[in-house]
């Protein structure tokens, strides 16, 4: 091995000024604080839920124990969020395609803002709108559904006379999660390599074939991730469901009758202000379940979206 001449590098130590140290400490501290808060949410919910977890079954509201208290609520939460996603995801992808590939380029940004405005409207307003406008409007169609599609368990009926059904809650939720899904998908579609699109068009593909060959495969993991983000939103949405849904508490897939399971979040909002003692602990325990579910969904969603970011080569 030939001896290489090692240049003598004077190892100057960077002088740590007190200002630097304070500033670095402050900003690191803020970052750590955020992680602490997230841990704190779990910890404090657990502490306040604990009395309900160890309480005997007959002291929990309903008298059948905590699991049977939370299960119908969890069922309602999952049911409403799932159907909301089923409606919103295809619409959101279609809207993202429209904004990125169909709309006139000059309009595309403004149209994007308009969809984002849907996300800016407070959930209480969606609730009032669902109650006073959407629910009455569904009375006719639900009667029709029971009459002609009543053999499907979802539309078994009898249709609710007020329109305050799971179906309306699902539709309101779908509108509310539409913008978040379409925003994430839109960004992914924008990043499709231009050359892929042009190559597809150059071999004679129509616009739809180009979208299917180049754009949709590229955005696939973003579509999955964004859908899960939307699912997380729908799971935790409170006020709109609390206002729209008329609750009876049973576990049923029937979307259009007047007997609906409540959701965890709506149940907390409705019961919390009047509750005392162990009831509060039970509500917080249900909140802990909701937190765990949404945390899981969101972590999965972010992992999927981030993986795309690493492999896409965009950015």
């Amino acid at each position: 091995m030939p001896a290489t001449e090692q240049p003598v590098r004077p190892r100057t130590k960077v002088r740590q000024r007190p200002g630097d140290r304070i500033f670095a400490g402050l900003s690191t501290g803020a970052g750590v604080l955020i992680l602490t808060v997230l841990g704190g949410v779990a910890a404090f919910l657990l502490i306040e839920a604990w009395p309900a977890i160890i309480a005997p079954a007959d002291e929990i509201p309903g008298g059948e124990g905590l699991v049977l208290y939370i299960w119908p609520l969890l069922f309602g939460t999952l049911l409403s969020a799932f159907f909301a996603l089923l409606i919103a995801a295809p619409l959101a992808v279609s809207i993202a395609l429209f904004i990125t590939h169909y709309a006139p380029r000059r309009l595309s940004q403004a149209l994007g803002y308009m969809i984002d405005l849907l996300a800016a409207i407070p959930s209480i307003i969606y609730g009032l709108w669902g109650f006073f406008v959407l629910a009455p409007a569904t009375l006719g169609p639900t009667t029709w559904l029971t009459e002609y599609l009543g053999f499907i368990p979802l539309f078994e009926g009898p249709p609710s006379a007020t329109g305050r059904t799971m179906l309306v809650a699902v539709m309101v939720l779908a509108v509310m999660i539409l913008p978040i899904i379409s925003a994430v998908v839109r960004e992914a579609f924008r990043q499709t390599p231009r050359l892929h699109e042009e190559a597809a068009l150059a071999i004679g593909a129509t616009r739809w074939e180009m979208l299917r060959m180049a754009v949709l495969p590229f955005g696939r993991s973003a579509i999955i991730g964004a859908s899960m983000l939307g699912l997380g939103r729908a799971l935790g949405e409170t006020m709109a469901v609390a206002i729209v849904l008329s609750v009876s508490g049973g576990v049923t897939f029937n979307l259009i009758s007047s007997g609906n399971p409540s959701t965890i979040a709506a149940n907390i909002a409705l019961k919390f202000p009047e509750s005392t003692g162990l009831d509060i602990n039970a509500l917080i325990a249900s909140g802990l379940v909701l937190f765990a579910v949404t945390l899981g969904v969101n972590m999965l969603a972010r992992t999927i979206i981030n993986r795309r970011r690493e492999f896409s080569g965009a950015n």
């Binding site: 919910l45 409170t238 907390i268 909002a269 909140g287 969904v297 969101n298």
Partner: peptide, 21 residues
């Protein structure tokens, strides 16, 4: 990662957290 995850915390859970605290 967790800041991203935190954007998805349901607002009611945030309220419960403050209450529990």
């Amino acid at each position: 990662f967790f800041v991203d995850v935190m954007t998805g915390i349901p607002s009611i859970v945030a309220g419960l957290f403050a209450f529990a605290l």
